[in-house]
């Protein structure tokens, strides 16, 4: 189909805008790394604490040469994966229970608020005593960091289901299982995706220094 000049100009403008955005993003990244390197090498920031891009590159090179990098990356990824899967499935399951039995959320709401406001990182020593100085402690810390937010986000997604659609399903005499399967869960997809994204970052917060790996375990990616 032949496009009008106005349409061609419109599409051109959109492409131009995309290019400008990408250019700015790349430039900002380069500026960030160059400034970091400059400030570190000139001593404006403490390179021992803040490191520098060149030091990171050297460390990665060393790890590759000594063949250690995969072992450490694998450990971190595995811990992250376990905590992520546990957090997601437990959060999803508990949110479903709260939705199906509304009295449970009324009972647990204040406890969830307290748990959510606890500084989980500060629980590190208690977790070590409970689970020992091993990967279990790291996973437990990451799980504690992500699960409450996970439950709240998914549960909110469920409760935001359109009341009119719920009524529609009731008029068809839908069971609670059908309501969840055909309406509540699909309607909450955008919230569930947001929760998954949030879960990844919270899991990493639980794993990375000074929270998890650096405290508990010496075979890890973050020690470098």
């Amino acid at each position: 189909m032949k496009q009008s000049e106005k349409q061609i100009a419109f599409l051109k403008n959109i492409k131009k805008e995309k290019r400008i955005i990408l250019l700015f993003q790349i430039s900002l990244t380069i500026i960030f790394f160059l400034s970091w390197e400059f400030l570190s090498s000139k001593g404006y920031i403490n390179s021992f604490i803040y490191s520098s891009p060149s030091k990171i590159i050297i460390t990665i090179k060393d790890l590759i040469i000594t063949n250690n990098i995969l072992k450490h990356v694998f450990t971190t990824v595995l811990e992250c994966l376990i905590a992520f899967i546990l957090g997601t499935s437990l959060g999803f399951g508990i949110a479903i229970i709260f939705y199906l039995f509304p009295i449970t959320i009324k009972i647990f709401d204040p406890f969830l608020t307290i748990l959510n406001s606890l500084p989980k990182v500060a629980l590190g020593p208690i977790i070590i005593i409970m689970a020992g100085a091993n990967p279990k402690s790291i996973i437990l810390t990451a799980l504690l960091t992500n699960i409450i937010v996970n439950i709240s986000t998914i549960y909110n997604g469920f409760t935001n289901t359109d009341e009119v659609k719920i009524k529609l399903f009731k008029t068809f005499k839908a069971s609670k299982r059908q309501m969840l399967h055909y309406l509540v869960i699909p309607s909450a997809y955008p919230t569930i995706i947001t929760s998954l994204k949030l879960n990844i970052s919270l899991t990493l917060i639980g794993l990375l220094p000074p929270v998890g790996e650096k405290i508990f375990f010496n075979k890890c990616y973050s020690r470098y």
Binding site: D162, V164, K165, K167, L168, T171, Y182, L183, P186, S187, Y189
Partner: peptide, 13 residues
């Protein structure tokens, strides 16, 4: 009995 609501309540997905 069939019920038609105020909104179409079609499921977007």
């Amino acid at each position: 009995i069939g019920y038609m609501l105020q909104e179409d309540a079609l499921l977007p997905y």
